[in-house]
Simulated scan of single mutants.
Amino acid sequence: MADHRSPAIILHSPQLGENIGAAARVMRNFGLTDLRLIAPRDGWPNPAAETMSAGAFGAGVTVSVYETLPEALEGITWLAAATARLRGMEKRVGDARDAAETAHARLRAGKSAIMFGAEKSGLPNDAVALSDFLMTYPVDPDFKSLNLAQAVCVFCSEWGRIALGPRGDDEAVKAGLGALAPRDELYRMFEHFEEELERAGYFFPPEKTALMKDNLRAALIRADWTQQEVQTFRGAIKALALGRGKARVIRED
């Protein structure tokens, strides 16, 4: 039976039901059961997905559907983004084996997820910015045409090699650290931080706001935040905001 903490597979804006079903099929082959869909183009449930799944949905693969990325990241403490382009962000980068090994080493730390983009457009930059790790495959540069379900298969096979084959003891969480913060809590912290930066006039010029937010999130995400650290940082943001308000009152007087 698959470990309930094994990685979730997130499909961001998938287009074809066939790819969803094929992804579910290969997931179940390698012991993965948590499939999360963000805004599937053709809705859910999808008969084409059922046909391609070869019974995977009845064999344990569960499907959760979300409208937005933050909702889909509930409970996630480590996120890898599958991308062919490194996007100019300072991120840890590796292949499917690296991603699988990291996710497996973090089993005791919480739940990981591997995120894949839409068939035509891949992942949007704001989704990549929220990831801890960029997973890229060493494909032939002259032919990079990898189907979505095939991309999922590459990772799942590496996960199965580690999780279902002979293995040693899991690596523990870093000694002394508390529970890692789920990604949805981090997202709310980012929004809180960015709201105060907006009020302070930090995002200038306006046309660079999205890029500046992506860069801030990419930098902050590398810190491996615990839940306590998130609470502390949000308290600090609130204190700074209150302090700025007091300073404004003093100047007005």
Score class of each variant (00 low, 15 high):
Ala48Ile: 01
Gly31Ile: 03
Asp95Ser: 10
Pro45Trp: 03
Arg217Ser: 06
Pro45Asp: 06
Arg161Lys: 14
Pro124Trp: 09
Ala151Met: 09
Met212His: 12
Pro70Glu: 08
Gly178His: 10
Ala181Thr: 09
Arg25Pro: 00
Glu18Leu: 05
Thr68Ala: 11
Val139Ile: 14
Arg25Ile: 00
Ile76Thr: 12
Arg244Phe: 04
Thr232Glu: 12
Val93Lys: 15
Trp44Ala: 02
Arg87Tyr: 06
Pro182Met: 07
Leu177Gly: 06
Leu211His: 15
Gln150Tyr: 02
Gln228Asn: 14
Glu90Tyr: 08
His4Pro: 15
Asp170Leu: 14
Leu35Glu: 01
Leu16Ser: 04
Ile10Gly: 00
Arg161Trp: 07
Ala96Gln: 03
Phe190Thr: 05
Phe155Ile: 06
Gly245Ser: 13
Leu197Asp: 10
Ser131Phe: 05
Pro141Glu: 13
Leu177Cys: 09
Arg167Asp: 11
Gly31Asn: 04
Arg244Ile: 02
Val154Glu: 03
Leu32Glu: 00
Arg222Leu: 08
Asp214Val: 07
Ala23Leu: 01
Phe116Arg: 03
Ala219Lys: 13
Phe116Cys: 02
Asp126Ile: 07
Ile10Trp: 02
Asp184Gln: 14
Ala179Val: 10
Asp224Gly: 12
Glu101Asp: 12
Glu71Gln: 15
Val93Arg: 14
Arg234Phe: 07
Val249Ile: 14
Val93Asn: 07
Ile76His: 03
Ala100Val: 01
Asp253Cys: 12
Gly75Cys: 07
Arg222Gln: 15
Arg5Phe: 14
Ile9Arg: 00
Ala109Glu: 10
Lys120Gln: 15
His4Asp: 15
Leu134His: 10
Ala54His: 01
Gly58Lys: 00
Ala247Asn: 13
Val128Arg: 03
Cys156Asn: 03
Arg251Glu: 15
Val249Met: 13
Ala210Met: 14
Met135Trp: 04
Ala241Gly: 11
Arg248Glu: 15
Gly94His: 05
Ile221Arg: 09
Asp214Trp: 06
Ser6Val: 05
Gly201Leu: 11
Glu195Trp: 10
Ser131Trp: 03
Glu74Cys: 05
Ala100Tyr: 02
Gly43Thr: 08
Arg244Val: 01
Leu86Tyr: 09
Ser157Ile: 05
Ala8Lys: 09
Pro47Asp: 06
Val154Pro: 01
Val152His: 01
Arg248Asp: 15
Lys120Gly: 08
Glu67Tyr: 02
Pro47Lys: 02
Thr232Ala: 13
Asp253Ser: 14
Ala175Leu: 08
Ala49His: 02
Thr62Ala: 13
Ala223Glu: 13
Met27Leu: 04
Ala175Lys: 11
Gly60Arg: 03
Asp98Leu: 04
Asp132Gly: 06
Ala72Gly: 11
Leu134Arg: 04
Asp132Ser: 11
Ala84Gly: 12
Ile38Lys: 02
Asn19Val: 00
Thr62Met: 08
Asn147Asp: 06
Glu207Trp: 11
Leu240Met: 15
Arg244Ser: 13
Asp98Cys: 07
Pro206Ala: 10
Gln150Trp: 04
Glu194Asn: 12
Val139Arg: 14
Leu216Met: 13
Ala129Gln: 05
Ala59Pro: 04
Ala54Ser: 08
